[in-house]
Design a protein around this nucleic acid. Structure first.
Length: 206
DNA sequence: AGAACGATCGACT
DNA sequence: GTCGATCGTTCTA
């Protein structure tokens, strides 16, 4: 299977965050394949970014994963009840990552809906808010701290350019082709870094 | 040991 | 728009 290589992640985080838009995220869970198209990301760079858990190279039990090789999954618990999935970037030892904020669901919809909503019916409102936030994405993909540290060049969780690269049928192209940059969500506490335009998303219009 | 806080979400007005 | 849930992480002492 042609998946994104470690070298894809081994470069400046802002480049990686932009290039990840439109890629296919694949999660293998209990014999099933869940997949979605990446449509929103944010960059976090420990070297210079007060919003990053590893700001100023802060090294603790939690941030240890950010110091792992590029192409590692960094997953942490937030607000006591949700999880966030990140892709570690930059050369090993430079703590930085791309936060996955939203996807377009493509495969394994039934399983994702069950993980997300249990037996509740999938109303239009729920469909609209299915995987449009970092906590929602992790819930729908069955990702928790147990998956922290996963190697993204492995078989359980990885990214690829096209659905065919993961043995999936072709999907329609992304709705949006333009990349919009703007300030990140929920980092008002982070001093000057709160205004960095490090959030990226695919949009229909520029 | 204790306290403060958070890269969020969903229920509710 | 507001607000509470809920608990691991981090820092202070």
């Amino acid at each position: 299977m042609a998946r994104l290589s470690r070298e894809f992640y081994n470069r400046p985080t802002l480049e990686a965050a932009r290039d990840l838009l439109g890629k296919i995220l694949v999660r293998r869970l209990e014999g099933q394949t869940l997949a979605g198209r990446v449509v929103e990301t944010e960059a976090y760079i420990g070297r210079c970014d007060k919003a990053c858990h590893a700001y100023n190279y802060r090294r603790t039990a939690r941030t240890e994963t950010l110091f792992a090789p590029p192409g590692t999954a960094y997953i942490y618990l937030i607000y006591g009840m949700y999880h966030c999935l990140n892709f570690v970037t930059e050369p090993e030892g430079e703590p930085a990552a791309v936060l996955l904020r939203a996807i377009e669901p493509l495969a394994g919809l039934e399983t994702m809906a069950r993980l997300r909503y249990g037996d509740k019916p999938l109303t239009p409102y729920r469909e609209k808010n299915f995987v449009n936030g970092p906590g929602k994405v992790c819930r729908a993909l069955g990702l928790t701290r147990a998956e922290n540290g996963l190697d993204l060049t492995g078989d359980v969780l990885f990214l690829c350019d096209r659905p065919e690269d993961a043995g999936l049928p072709p999907f329609p192209p992304p709705l949006g082709e333009h990349i919009i940059a703007g300030p990140r969500v929920g980092v008002d506490y982070a001093g000057e870094a709160r205004d960095f335009p490090w959030r990226f998303r695919l949009a229909e219009e520029a």
